[in-house]
């Protein structure tokens, strides 16, 4: 039996047409619309925490110190004032002998090299969180204006050596010494 197409087909046309248009309209709506929904709470990861996770070292930044990550070879730099800063660096493998490092830092302060027998005047050892740190304290020449100074604490962890160095005018270095050692005592290696 032949069914007249006119009635059935026009209804069919309308139905199919509506399906097609509805598909188009519903999809256009979702692409540009702002969605609001609720999710379980997620932990907040600050930039500092992220840097700490990436570097393998956790620290607490003292209030007056300002973090700076612009130096690519350093883990972090803390700016205390225009001329005083604390730098944290990590070197893999061998990093030279103690005397070589001390003389390198002496050179930075415009001092001549020293002998191994005189290291006891500059070097001390501290243990924080079961980690042994070598602490080197140096002052620049008296005639230097302003006289410069530095304190470096370094420790080995796994295959890396971590250097934490406070440097700047000796007067500020001495003023920051306690806070610096407190900072060193709080760092934790992952």
């Amino acid at each position: 039996m032949e069914v007249p197409s006119l009635l059935i087909n026009s209804r069919f046309l309308l139905l199919i047409g509506m399906v097609g248009v509805a598909t188009l309209l519903s999809s256009c709506q979702t692409k540009d619309s702002v969605n609001v929904y609720f999710t379980p709470k997620e932990p907040i990861i600050t930039f500092t925490q992220l840097k700490q996770t990436q570097s393998g070292l956790t620290w607490t930044t003292p209030k007056q110190w300002k973090e700076n990550y612009s130096h690519t070879k350093r883990i972090v730099t803390f700016v205390i004032d225009d001329s005083t800063q604390v730098t944290v660096t990590r070197f893999e493998g061998r990093t030279g002998s103690l005397i070589a490092n001390v003389n390198r830092w002496r050179g930075q302060l415009k001092l001549g090299p020293t002998r191994k027998s005189r290291l006891k005047y500059y070097v001390s050892y501290e243990t924080f969180n079961r980690k042994k740190f070598t602490v080197v304290k140096l002052r620049g020449p008296r005639k230097q204006k302003p006289r410069q100074g530095l304190i470096t604490a370094f420790a080995k962890h796994n295959n890396d050596t971590w250097f934490i160095k406070l440097s700047g005018p000796n007067r500020t270095v001495l003023r920051q010494r306690r806070q610096f050692m407190e900072f060193v005592s709080n760092v934790q290696f992952h």
């Binding site: 692409k31 540009d32 619309s33 702002v34 969605n35 609001v36 929904y37 609720f38 999710t39 379980p40 709470k41 997620e42 907040i44």
Partner: peptide
């Protein structure tokens, strides 16, 4: 909005905007 005690309210602006 993280002020909720157990849930966060998220307002998402799609890339088209």
């Amino acid at each position: 909005d993280t002020s909720g005690e157990t849930k966060d309210a998220v307002i998402s602006f799609p890339e088209a905007l």
